[in-house]
């Protein structure tokens, strides 16, 4: 290996600063959420305590945090499953030519770039004017899909652009039906990427704010609850909640990444059964 050039060290330093910039503030509130009972929103720490975390578990101190967490979690799972299924189907559709595919593609791009507040306002107006009540599981769910589906579909594009079609041809030549080809050949090959789509579906929904703002109805999701707190809570309890939900997000990301890693490894280990058919 040739020795590192000087530019490597300069760029590495910039990269380290970038990481500090990304993670520093979050780590800061992580530390400050252990602020002592008399402490405020900034340093110095007045002792350390779990006071603010304990505060979170007391119903009356702040709003309905746990209810909103349960709703956000349920909604995240709903959006995740729907995103995976609909994106895979959409990805398969776009491998063929079909009438209107261009229109659908531009709709997806529009869905990605449209200011979130338009979705919120539009869906809210649509529901209220047609006499339906907005609810996180109906209007909120649909509004969030307009944000997760484009990511899901774009990932599927990336996956299928790299997909080796000869596997399918081999399956077809061996007499597999289109469904068998999909079920036993295509899906297992793309499975690790589907976990990626699921990760996007869940986390984007779990953290979504703007598109849920006018579409969640009378029961808040967690980001809405947190946003409400920013205007009237001025104690480190805000940080404690932020730390908890960030830790939860990190756990979910960790789970998804581990599953992907195992799936990829398993595929690498067991992917080839060459020769096992021989006696």
């Amino acid at each position: 290996m040739e020795p590192r050039s000087r530019s490597f060290y300069v760029l590495a330093a910039i990269f380290a600063l970038f990481l500090l910039f990304l993670y520093g503030p979050t780590l800061t509130i992580g530390i400050l959420s252990f602020q002592g009972e008399g402490g405020g929103l900034t340093f110095p720490m007045r002792g350390t305590s779990l006071h603010w975390f304990r505060d979170l578990f007391e119903q009356q101190a702040v709003g309905d945090i746990w209810g909103s967490f349960r709703r956000s979690f349920a909604l995240g799972l709903m959006v995740m499953v729907t995103t995976v299924v609909v994106s895979v189907m959409g990805g398969l559709a776009f491998r063929k030519r079909f009438y209107g595919s261009n229109v659908l593609f531009y709709l997806i791009i529009t869905s990605l770039v449209i200011p979130s507040i338009l979705i919120s306002l539009g869906v809210g107006l649509m529901f209220s004017q047609s006499g339906l009540t907005v609810h996180w599981a109906t209007s909120g769910f649909g509004a969030q899909l307009t944000w997760t589906l484009p990511f899901g579909l774009l990932i599927m594009f990336a996956v299928f652009n790299r997909f080796d079609k000869s596997y399918e041809e081999a399956a077809r030549d061996l007499g597999a039906t289109p469904w068998q080809t999909l079920r036993h050949v295509v899906l297992p090959i793309i499975a690790p990427s589907l976990i990626g789509v699921a990760l996007f579906g869940f986390t984007l929904s779990y953290d979504e704010f703007a598109r849920t703002l006018l579409t969640a109805g009378s029961y808040n999701t967690l980001p809405l609850e947190i946003y409400g707190m920013t205007t009237n809570v001025t104690t480190p309890v805000l940080y404690a909640l932020g730390t908890l939900t960030t830790v939860f997000s990190l756990l979910m990301i960790g789970v998804f990444l581990c599953v992907t890693w195992f799936a990829t490894r398993r595929r690498a280990a067991k992917g080839s059964d060459a020769g096992s058919g021989l006696v």
Binding site: T26, I226, T246
Partner: peptide, 11 residues
């Protein structure tokens, strides 16, 4: 993949 609002608060 974490919350934008929390990331704003953290400043």
């Amino acid at each position: 993949w974490t919350s934008n609002i929390i990331r704003m608060i953290s400043w």
